[in-house]
Write a protein that binds this DNA or RNA. Structure first.
Lengths: 211, 211
DNA sequence: CCATAACCGGATACAGCATATCCGTTTCAT
DNA sequence: ATGAAACGGATATGCTGTATCCGGTTATGG
């Protein structure tokens, strides 16, 4: 799509294939990018990534013109994974359970990925593959909401525009200092999901303690 | 308390009073600090504040050793206002309404104060007057929750430790790009409050549009 | 009105940081 | 073996926010 090679396996067609070690390093960098961005967020340096990959900075800058390029490559993949989750949810029968389950799974993924969360807040530059993946996810969410609504499972006034704010709220809980790796966010997601149902309902709350 | 004069009127006892113009400028700076921090957040520069106050940078640095000092002075006041709100709520009869009303009012205040919100996320340096004010607010929240709970108004498992995450969530909605000055947050606060009640209940949702 | 201590203004030195480059060295491929 | 490709990482660059310094100004008491 863009100017960067897809995350897949070998080099793309048109261009002369990379030397074997070079291609290997490309993979290493992508991997390291994933890990570093997940752990330290988007503000991580390409130097960080390089070091983490056991490579020199120069190597990284030869493969990816700048940080944006690498981040885009990395997160487009991850957003596509989420889009796939949504598609799978769309196949379930119970519209509300599908929506709820998707949110839980997608946010569970984000829980361990600070970079991804930061990306949700900010927003992608238009025209990138990343923006495309983003729209993809958004449109699947719409479908999920629409179906739950069609089944009469949603409280009056709930729309697809509620999804982003809800994600933002849960993200905020995840970002809370202290209980980083705990599942505290599930507690609040439960409260919110209860609040989205057509029929008033109180599922048992996940405890404030560990998951 | 700290080493800085209180926000009040004239100079403190012990020290020789400031020259009249100097004291006036002190007020100007405090005022400007409030406004600038509220609008641009804690990352605002003392140079910004100075310019906003119509004063030179040097003047500001003479009154406040650094940004932290000014921010502390400014936000201690604001937190005290919130503590006062909580005390007033504690005087109401209906424990749940008191809690809900307090949250609404306090968050409504935060809605227009980016600096204050950033302060909630981060957390104050221990030992400052600011930390004291913070604890004050926290303890009042505890009391508010305890009372609602004692009146049997709270859903099972809800505790005072839920307040901070809830505030964080609402803050996240306020920080959402785009709908900054809208009252969108009230919508989600309503959902969450419904979820806090002992009896399942659905108050009508504030619309996603303007307030 | 004068003297002088207090105060003001804002140009600028400083420090920290992330980005991106450059080029001598090493590795691959034939 | 030998040239092309790739590597490494020290370092130049640019930017931002912090804080100081000192010549000029203003208030105040005698």
């Amino acid at each position: 799509m863009g100017g960067q090679r897809e995350g897949g396996e070998p080099a793309a067609a048109g261009a002369r294939p990379l030397r074997r070690d070079a291609e290997l390093n490309r993979q290493r960098i992508l991997r390291a990018g994933r890990e570093v961005f997940a752990a330290r967020g988007l503000q991580a340096t390409l130097n960080d990534v390089a070091h983490h990959a056991g490579l020199g900075v120069g190597t990284v800058y030869r493969k990816f013109p700048d940080k944006r390029a690498l981040a885009e490559a990395v997160f487009t993949e991850e957003l596509d994974e989420i889009a796939a989750m949504a598609r799978k949810a769309l196949a379930e029968d119970d519209g509300f359970a599908a929506l709820a389950g998707f949110l839980e799974r997608a946010l569970g993924l984000a829980a361990h990925n600070r970079g991804l969360r930061e990306l949700m807040r900010r927003g992608a530059v238009e025209g990138t593959g990343l923006a495309r993946a983003r729209r993809q996810v958004a449109s699947h969410c719409e479908a999920l909401v629409a179906r739950a609504r069609a089944q009469g499972a949603l409280r009056d006034g709930v729309t697809e525009t509620d999804i982003a704010p809800i994600a933002a709220m849960i993200d905020a809980v995840m970002a809370l200092p202290g209980e980083r790796p705990s599942g505290l966010w599930r507690r609040y997601l439960a409260i919110i999901l209860d609040g989205l149902r057509a029929q008033p309902c109180q599922t048992p709350l996940p405890s404030p303690g560990r998951t």
